[in-house]
Simulated scan of single mutants.
Amino acid sequence: MSIFDSLKKKSAHVTDAGETYFEKTQEYYKLKIFQQVTISVSLVAKALIIGGLTAIGLLFLAFALALAIGNWLDSASLGYVTVGALFVLMAFILYLKRAVINGIIIKKLADKFFDA
């Protein structure tokens, strides 16, 4: 057996190993992308469902609170104005704290994506 035959066999073996590695790496990345897309779609779907139901619940609670305050003040319009002012105040506070909220969201998403 000559040196050239030995080198030819070794290079064929290395080439086969390289092709196998490339195929397995490609399969791994396809599965990883599928996992990340699935997690993302799941998060969005859950947020829409839970957020929608919460919004409907808050809407009914806001009307009930407005009616209660209106009965207490003997003026329905003052009840609605009071509840509207509370919502505007909450929105303003959330606007001021938006950086903190962004940090919390980024941390939660990073935990989901990089630990999964």
Rank of each mutant, 00 (worst) to 15 (best):
Q35D: 14
L7M: 12
V83F: 00
V83I: 03
T15E: 15
T15F: 12
I50L: 04
L94Y: 13
G18M: 10
N102C: 08
S42W: 04
I50Q: 02
S6T: 13
I69K: 00
A110T: 15
D111C: 04
M90W: 10
S75R: 03
K32L: 09
I101G: 04
V44H: 01
K24I: 12
L59Q: 10
S2P: 07
T54V: 08
K112S: 06
S75I: 06
L61H: 03
T15H: 14
A64K: 11
I33L: 09
V44F: 04
A66N: 01
I39K: 00
K46P: 00
D16A: 12
D16I: 04
S75P: 03
G51I: 01
G18F: 07
D111V: 06
Y28G: 12
F113R: 02
A64Y: 07
E19P: 02
E19N: 13
L86A: 04
G103E: 10
F22S: 11
F4T: 14
K46R: 08
L59N: 11
N71K: 09
T25S: 15
A68R: 07
A99L: 11
F4P: 03
L59I: 07
G57Y: 05
A110D: 15
K32D: 06
Y29N: 11
A116M: 06
I56P: 01
A12T: 13
S2K: 09
K107E: 13
S42H: 02
D16S: 14
K10P: 02
F63I: 09
I93D: 04
K97G: 07
L86Q: 01
L89W: 05
V41G: 01
N102H: 13
I104A: 09
A99G: 11
G79A: 04
Y21F: 15
L7A: 11
V100N: 12
W72I: 06
A64P: 03
L53F: 09
K97N: 12
K24P: 04
G51Y: 01
L67H: 09
I69E: 00
K112P: 02
L7E: 09
L31H: 13
L89I: 10
V44G: 02
V83Q: 00
V41K: 03
G70P: 02
S77V: 10
G79L: 00
Y95L: 10
T20H: 10
K112C: 05
I49T: 07
L59C: 09
S2W: 05
T38G: 08
V14I: 15
I93L: 12
N102E: 12
F60W: 05
T25H: 13
S11R: 15
F34T: 11
L61V: 07
D74N: 12
I101R: 10
K9Y: 10
G103C: 05
D111T: 09
F22I: 13
M1N: 07
G52Q: 02
I104T: 09
Y28F: 15
F92C: 07
A45E: 03
N102G: 08
Y21L: 15
S42R: 08
E27D: 15
D16F: 02
V41P: 01
Y29S: 09
F113I: 04
S75V: 03
T15N: 14
R98L: 08
S75E: 05
